[in-house]
Design a protein around this nucleic acid. Structure first.
Lengths: 256, 256
DNA sequence: CGCACGTTTGAAACTGCTCAAATGCAGTGG
DNA sequence: CCACTGCATTTGAGCAGTTTCAAACGTGCG
């Protein structure tokens, strides 16, 4: 996080390349072990691009699909436009995560992908990735795994958004973000929310006012400490309890 | 729909095989043109199984993943178990559709997949499919397409479930089902709902009572004719209007 | 024919949304 | 450097849609 953005071009390039192998392409390289030679080949096809500034768009809906992207640093949000002007945030992408997988099917990007802050990504031309994955079975398998996982994650999000109260949604989100930061060696309990409350609410299917009130209740209960976008989970286990749907007041009815 | 289930074994096998190439594996064969030889090879690795009776399960959560399935006739629902006894319907699967794609990532099935009526499926061993798709680039591409489409569909469902009123959700669902039946040469406006109202409501994130009331309002408005599970869309364009989120009363707020 | 289950209907409670306005924060230009 | 403007966030009050609880109704299967 927070790469120095005024390092010399050479150092920068080196850093990105290093980040790429060790972190950002992690989703493609782990957990199926690709050997040194394979990751080198993968490295060879990725393209590096200048960082996106806050608000800059990686792609717009309808744009032809040619590559997927991996986040190196910063963060992205992808959103879908409704049949009118309204937009729905579909996902947030943190470093090491892959972006654009939903465009393969139709051949064009269905979403708008936008930087939430200064963000650098690398581009992986899809046709080359396909070709390479034909040569490297482990890579092919891993690509399918990543996509499958995305489907699974989507299922979980669906559950969250359709059957949980505002507080539960927020608790789940905070814990999920914590885990994702934690996976990259950062604190699971103290982090900076890269997105606005409005985007967060939109993602969780909540009005911004409701999101704000949920934050307040958590703060009042001593579960959370919030300073601007900075968040600290004071009682992660209590939040986890909420997550489990316990005492589910509203929604949820035992089935079968 | 409605294959004669007392035809002789031989005829049955022939029919299934025929259905497999022309219909059920359509998702894998179309729209990328696979030539005759390729589809034959694909046919060779699929396994046929005896039909599932209503309520029978194709897989349970945690079961090791080894194959994906294609629906030949009948219908399935897949559902996720919550941390307690509650379950959430994730998807319904009609003939020609592929099932089990969400299990690749973790190596075990996250969902319960259950027959809603007498249903026949064919099994496609995943390792063989992977191997075959290495030999047939078109197949590899198509497999990725199908998975990507699933991600995209999930995104759309997310929008439906998180930002639409009960009536809008039902309208969207009915039109969606109509399209899926229509794709298989059946009527888009008259069909039989294979699932219970309870499952339907669960899928749409609604209490069964709410689902029922939404049906009633549509019937009273003359948009729908319902006889048990049989449904007729009397005014599809009016339903489509609702779908577009028009006049969105509740939810939805213009963004940006 | 009868029981069980899915479906429907009614009434009340509740969550989250909408509208409206105050507050805080950040980037801009003087 | 500071004031200003615009936007994000917060807070309050009222309303609407959905859920919940409860009970009647219909249908299918033994």
């Amino acid at each position: 996080m927070g790469e120095s953005s005024n390092a010399s071009q050479l150092i920068r390039l080196h850093e990105i390349r290093k980040a790429c192998s060790s972190c950002s392409l992690r989703e493609l390289c782990l957990p199926v072990a690709l050997d040194r030679k394979d990751t080198d080949e993968l490295d060879r096809i990725v393209e590096h691009r200048r960082p996106l500034r806050k608000g800059e768009k990686l792609c717009r809906p309808g744009q032809p699909f040619s590559a997927i992207y991996a986040v190196l640093s910063g963060s992205l949000k992808s959103s879908l436009l409704g049949h009118r002007g309204d937009s729905q945030v579909i996902a947030f992408h943190l470093p090491s995560e892959l972006v654009g997988l939903d465009a393969i099917g139709s051949g064009s990007h269905p979403t708008t992908i936008e930087a939430l802050e200064t963000t650098s990504v690398c581009k992986i031309p899809f046709s080359q990735l396909e070709a390479l994955s034909r040569k490297i079975p482990g890579l092919q398998h891993q690509l399918l795994r990543v996509m499958s996982k995305e489907i699974f994650d989507e299922h979980e999000l669906l559950q969250v958004v359709s059957r949980r109260t505002a507080e539960q949604r927020l608790a789940i989100m905070l814990i999920n973000l914590g885990q994702r930061f934690g996976r990259r060696g950062l604190s699971r309990t103290r982090f900076r929310l890269p997105m606005s409350r409005l985007d967060l609410g939109n993602y969780l299917g909540l009005a911004p006012e409701t999101t704000s009130r949920a934050f307040r209740r958590f703060i009042d209960q001593g579960l959370l400490k919030v300073t601007g976008k900075e968040v600290e989970l004071l009682d992660p286990s209590a939040l986890q309890e909420l997550t489990d749907g316990m005492s589910a007041p509203f929604h949820s009815r035992k089935q079968r």
